[in-house]
């Protein structure tokens, strides 16, 4: 799976923040703001990992129950940027919406919140190749000031699952 495709998937961990029950009520407001962090990205199974630094910003619209987000990760000659709006259903502890990865295309996201973790399924198509792109994003919160995230993706060429991204963030 190509890096830029994964970039979009990586963005979804942000979406899951808004779906987590600990963010119900005041929590979506608490996660609004700016986060900084960094980690590793891998383009395909067997490819070397590369370091990236990231910035994330989000805004919670309570009345509409939506969160708007933007995040950008930069590495050595690597850049991916994701923007989008997601809707949070507090009753069903579910989240759904659409995110756009700059240069790649739009993707659908859906997932559930369980305890301190969020798990989301991501699916879409690469704009250039037309091939399906899917993955699973997991995030784990540690208090309200930091969280870790990881993305496991399926390589379209081999069908193998591999860890495409992992990072940690703080305010």
């Amino acid at each position: 799976m190509k890096t830029k495709q994964l970039a979009f998937l990586t963005g979804f961990f942000i979406a899951s923040l808004t779906a987590h029950p600990i963010f119900a009520g005041e929590l979506p407001e608490r996660i609004s703001g700016v986060w900084v962090g960094g980690g590793l990205i891998r383009k395909s199974p067997g490819a070397p990992s590369e370091r990236v630094r990231c910035r994330f910003s989000s805004k919670w619209a309570k009345r509409a129950a939506t969160i708007s987000l933007r995040y950008i990760c930069l590495g050595i000659d690597i850049k991916f940027e994701t923007t989008g709006t997601l809707k949070y259903n507090q009753a069903g502890q579910a989240i759904a919406g659409k995110l756009v990865v700059v240069g790649i295309g739009g993707f659908r996201a859906s997932g559930k919140v369980k305890g301190d973790k969020v798990v989301m399924n991501l699916s879409g198509k690469d704009k250039k190749s037309g091939k399906p792109v899917n993955g699973t994003l997991a995030i784990a919160f540690k208090g309200n000031k930091s969280f870790r995230s990881s993305l496991t993706a399926t390589d379209p060429k081999t069908g193998k699952r591999f860890q495409a991204f992992k990072a940690s963030f703080k305010r």
Binding site: L40, K43, S44, G46, A47, P48, S49, E50, R51, I76
Partner: peptide
Amino acid sequence: NGNTPTILPS
């Protein structure tokens, strides 16, 4: 594999 890793690894 078609990769061009950085000389200084992650």
